[in-house]
Computed example of a mutant assay.
Amino acid sequence: MSHRPLATMAATALAAGCLWFATAPEGEAASSTTLADGLNGPYLYLGWGDAPSPTKVMSATGITQFTLAFMLSDGTCTPKWDGERGLTGGTDAAAIKAIRKAGGDVTVSFGGAGGAKLGEKCGSAAALAAAYQKVVDAYDLGSIDIDIEGTEFTKSSVRKRVVGALKTVKAKNPDLKVYVTFDSGPEGPGTIGTDLVRRAAAKGLEVDGWAVMPFDFEQGETDMVAATKSAVKGLKDVVADAYGISSGAAYREVGFSTMNGVTDSDGETVTVAGFKAMVTYAKKHHLARVSLWSVNRDRSCAAGSEADECSGINQSKYAFTKTLATYTG
Rank of each mutant, 00 (worst) to 15 (best):
A7Q: 14
A11E: 14
A11D: 14
T12A: 14
A13K: 09
L14K: 12
L19V: 05
D37C: 07
G38M: 07
G38T: 11
N40R: 11
G41K: 11
Y43M: 05
L44M: 07
L46D: 08
G47N: 10
G49E: 13
S53A: 12
L72E: 11
T76W: 02
P79F: 00
T88N: 15
D92C: 04
D92I: 06
A94F: 09
K97S: 09
T107R: 06
G111T: 06
G114S: 15
K117S: 12
K117W: 12
L118E: 02
E120A: 05
L128P: 01
A129Y: 02
A129W: 02
A131W: 02
D137N: 10
A138S: 11
Y139G: 01
I144G: 00
D145V: 04
I146V: 15
D147T: 06
T151S: 15
K155S: 14
S156L: 13
S157Q: 11
R159K: 09
R161V: 07
P174R: 14
V180N: 07
T181N: 13
T181Q: 05
D183I: 09
I192G: 02
G193E: 07
D195R: 08
L196E: 00
A201N: 00
A202K: 11
G209D: 05
M213L: 10
P214I: 01
D216W: 09
T222F: 07
A226E: 13
A227F: 05
A227Q: 07
G234W: 02
D237E: 15
A240Y: 09
A240C: 08
D241P: 00
G244Q: 12
A249D: 15
V254F: 13
F256C: 08
F256V: 05
N260P: 07
G261M: 08
G267H: 10
V270L: 15
G274P: 10
T280W: 01
K283R: 14
A288D: 11
R297W: 04
R297I: 00
R299L: 01
C310S: 09
I313K: 05
I313T: 14
K317C: 09
Y318R: 06
A325E: 13
T328D: 13
